[in-house]
């Protein structure tokens, strides 16, 4: 019953504190849009210098992504030095060789792919089809699902953690503990209040990313919502738990590099398959790993509930664990 009163109060505070609401809803939209602008563009033109390359061969290279310019060998080296060329194609003794500028792995990779056609010389290229995704799946489509999960996680962690901390610093926690409220009712009240709010937050962020930014989306929208809400609840229970170990807002912010940043590395933005077992085990102790995996499953691979249920249960487990620990941590303030 008191859980409900705490929840009501939190929602009322949200209504008054427009700035925090904006931080939780508008800030992720803004950052996602910026990421989208940076990542979701067509590949830039690759500048290729050609030295002694016969015309017939250059024709084969005609592609939208390539700008080929014939030049002398000295000029080409000069331009490589300046960084205005991505690579130089040489033709000597009936052999072609490619000199890559090399400081940008993306450009290097793209160039090598473009130049495949020179080597294979096939009339009928292999028929390529996509089991998941599609030909124009860009970098943003790949990281988008992870980013949606991450921003929900990050902002709920901060706002939830700080509001619980403020409850302590402004003395209302102590005041509350001098009433017959149960410790668990306070913690569940927070989960419920923020839970309701994160439904709204998740709907806004997920619809914006999918329908406005156009992140690749195969699966069920409600699964996306479910996963983001579960991620938000895990973030909230973790944030409120660690706030017990912070004396003030500044110390709360210090948890970001400790708790949030490492999770990004394991969230699937960077490949982890090839890493050592112990590194992977580390990743498996982080909520965001599961949330991100489920998000990518749903959005890129049209995962069914059965495919993501493990992740869902793990996220629920994290929330249950952090919540229990938090109820226990409040014993520091009142034994009963």
């Amino acid at each position: 019953m008191n859980t409900f009163h705490v929840m009501k109060r939190i929602l009322l505070q949200f209504r008054r504190d427009k700035r925090s609401v904006a931080l939780m809803v508008v800030a992720p939209l803004l950052v996602l849009s910026l990421m989208w602008m940076v990542l979701d563009h067509d590949e830039s033109n690759l500048e290729l210098g050609a030295v002694n390359v016969p015309e017939s061969m250059l024709e084969k290279l005609s592609s939208d992504a390539l700008v080929v310019e014939t030049m002398s060998s000295t000029k080409a080296e000069e331009k490589l030095e300046e960084g205005t060329l991505d690579a130089v194609l040489y033709f000597e003794n009936q052999e072609i060789s490619l000199l890559l500028e090399g400081s940008d792995p993306n450009a290097a990779g793209a160039l090598q792919k473009e130049l495949q056609s020179l080597r294979t010389n096939q009339k009928d290229p292999v028929d390529v089809e996509y089991y998941h995704g599609s030909e124009d799946l860009g970098l943003f489509d790949y990281v988008g699902p992870v980013l949606i999960g991450f921003f929900v996680f990050f902002f709920v962690f901060i706002v939830g953690g700080v509001s619980f901390l403020r409850e302590r610093t402004q003395g209302t926690l102590e005041r509350l503990l001098a009433t017959p409220i149960k410790r668990s009712e306070i913690v569940f009240g927070y989960l419920a209040g923020f839970g309701l709010f994160t439904i709204l937050q998740s709907v806004v962020i997920a619809s914006f990313s999918i329908y406005i930014l156009g992140v690749f989306m195969e699966g069920n929208f409600f699964y996306v919502l479910m996963v983001t809400i579960l991620l938000a609840l895990a973030a909230l229970s973790l944030g409120t738990l660690v706030s017990a170990f912070a004396k003030n807002e500044f110390q709360m912010i210090q948890f970001i590099p400790l708790i949030i940043v490492p999770q990004v590395f394991f969230s699937g933005l960077f490949p982890t398959e090839g890493l050592g077992t112990w590194v992977q085990v580390l990743g498996q102790m982080m909520p965001l790993t599961y949330g991100a995996e489920a998000m990518r499953g749903i959005m890129l691979r049209e995962a069914s509930f059965a495919d993501i249920q493990l992740e869902i249960y793990v996220l629920l487990g994290f929330t249950a664990l952090f919540t229990t620990l938090n109820i226990f941590a409040l014993k520091k303030h009142r034994r009963l």
Binding site: Q13, D17, Q170, G171, T172, R175, L176, T179, P180
Partner: peptide, 16 residues
């Protein structure tokens, strides 16, 4: 519930 407690600091929710 038998007593009321008024702490030294004003334990109030500022936004409300």
């Amino acid at each position: 519930k038998n007593f009321g407690f008024m702490a030294q600091s004003d334990a109030l929710y500022q936004e409300l």
